[in-house]
Design a protein around this nucleic acid. Sequence first.
DNA 1: TGCCAGGCCGGGT
DNA 2: ACCCGGCATGGC
Length: 223
Amino acid sequence: MDLLKVYNRLYEDFGPQHWWPADSAFEVVLGAVLVQNTSWNNVQKCIDQLRDEKIFSPEAILSIPENVLAEKIRSSGYYHQKARRLRDVLSYFQQSAGGDFARCFSRNPETLRQELLALRGVGPETADSILLYAGNLPFFVVDAYTRRFLYRHHVRIDSKGQPDDFVLQSKNYERIRLFFERRIPRDVSLYNEFHALFVELGKKYCRKTSPLCDQCPLRCFNH
DNA sequence: TGCCAGGCCGGGT
DNA sequence: ACCCGGCATGGC
């Protein structure tokens, strides 16, 4: 499958997505943690509330008790876990470069990625979302929609007769990320837009229970 | 009503 | 190295 053709078709149909829906690196990190296995709608409520209450910087969030923070982010679900995870991630950025995100992202990207992955609460998708959308670093983000797209279009990661559900298994994140990174130009803007388009596609036509349908802009790739 | 959402962790095999 | 239960709210 020609992934650039897929990209072009999605872009034709949906247009530019202007991702990540945030206007600072801090806000990207915040959203990346809160959105884990949660609808963005639930996350947006938390972000709005934190902004209204002026708890909208690493310093501000780290200055309030964890249990208070947890209540502020209740609507994002898993809020006890996420309060702790958020503190851990923001603490990392604070001590890594004094809260200077730009300086932090100017370090060695692979090292940075490993350090993010070492934090509790940061798995591969969250790490890559932060690296790509907060740091403008070329890491392709793989999410549930991306996996579902590959699965439903019978895309195989290699030629060695993988089972069809290879792409659905979370342990194979890295293989899928590299699959994309090897096949499309290493371009931050392209990675940015492509993932955003997959999410838009997913929300409209590729939810877990929705079948491939005639409305889907990728119907031409069906077999 | 029950299932789903832009995952990840930790304990048990 | 996998597998799997737990985490939790809001929308449809």
